[in-house]
């Protein structure tokens, strides 16, 4: 009984926030959380509303529940499941490749004794500020590297970004003490061994950060699909959703010049509910990925490893 640490005792007492501030902070975060969750809930509810009820406007609690939208998705399974498969593959493989490439490059750039350090850092830094534009990268990727119409076109062009490399470089430079690496060197470890056995295990937070960035980047990416994939059967899920949304826009914009057929084409478009159902399908897996990364955000791993 006596060992129980109460709220008022010990260190806690000093690090505590004022109750008033506490309430205020909770309130602010509550509002922020609501702002994030409500739209998602709304999308979910729209996807569950029947088409008839939708005609009278959106409602939080639908007058008529229906799974029409999800049935429609199931019917479109030949489109959606391959796209989902491609999205998952690209996200998983892309994140792994991306993390390996980004952190190794970042690590090399963080070593002061590396000769080309300055030059390479500039080469990484400059494209972060000015990029070559869409036409040139498209030209390189299609005509020189022949990446068109392959799953690698979705992975490689966005695997390494300058921004992520700079984050890694800064992290390795500031949080991994030189003395730790030096000590390993004295013990006879090779460069690779140092990297894999000493540096990486100490860098879980930055790995998780980069992994999370890449994972979201890959999952949310539709532009690569649109640019580099000619066969619509190889589109990722996001590209499929984007295409569906854009169809509505195109058909209404150019309706006047398309002739009578336009009305028929519009009638065949997926309805609002179905589009929302695709959105839900996209949100779910990535929402599950987030907690997985979160547990690696631990700080202070290297605190106390070196006594200067």
């Amino acid at each position: 009984m006596t060992t129980k640490v109460t709220y008022q005792s010990g260190l806690e007492k000093f690090n505590r926030i004022k109750p008033g501030t506490n309430v205020l902070f909770n309130f602010i975060f509550l509002i922020l959380a609501i702002m994030c969750v409500v739209p998602v809930l709304f999308v979910l509810m729209i996807s569950l509303t029947s088409e008839k009820a939708l005609e009278n406007g959106y409602q939080f609690i639908p007058k008529e529940f229906s799974f029409e939208a999800y049935k429609f998705l199931a019917q479109q399974g030949h489109l959606i499941f391959p796209a989902l498969g491609i999205s998952v593959f690209v996200t998983v493989v892309g994140t792994v490749i991306g993390v390996i490439l980004t952190t190794t490059l970042g690590y090399v750039l963080s070593r002061r004794e590396y000769k080309l350090n300055k030059l390479l850092t500039w080469m990484v830094f400059i494209p972060m500020v000015f990029n070559g534009g869409m036409v040139s990268s498209y030209y390189i990727n299609t005509n020189l590297l022949h990446l068109k119409d392959s799953v690698w076109a979705l992975i490689l062009p966005i695997a390494v970004s300058s921004f992520n490399v700079i984050i890694c470089r800064t992290y390795f430079r500031t949080t991994i003490p030189d003395s730790v690496i030096e000590s390993a060197k004295i013990d006879g470890a090779s460069e690779l061994r140092i990297y894999f056995r000493i540096v990486l295990p100490l860098s879980l937070p930055v790995l998780a950060t980069i992994g999370l960035f890449l994972c979201f980047g890959y999952w949310n990416d539709w532009f690569q699909s649109m640019l580099y994939i000619d066969n619509q059967r190889m589109y990722s899920l996001q590209a499929l959703l984007n295409m569906t949304m854009q169809n509505v826009e195109y058909l209404s914009k150019n309706r006047a010049f398309m002739g009578v057929e336009a009305a028929q084409l519009v009638a065949n478009l997926p309805k609002e509910g179905s589009r929302m159902a695709i959105a839900i399908l996209i949100i779910l897996p990535i929402a599950c990925a987030y907690p997985f990364f979160q547990k690696y955000f631990i700080s202070g791993l290297t605190v106390g490893s070196v006594k200067e």
Partner: peptide
């Protein structure tokens, strides 16, 4: 025969024209 989606068509065709594909 290659098919560009309604919404992708404009961007895709721009790329093809711009890069002389």
């Amino acid at each position: 025969l290659k098919v560009a989606g309604w919404g992708d068509w404009e961007t895709k065709m721009n790329q093809i024209i711009n890069t002389s594909e």
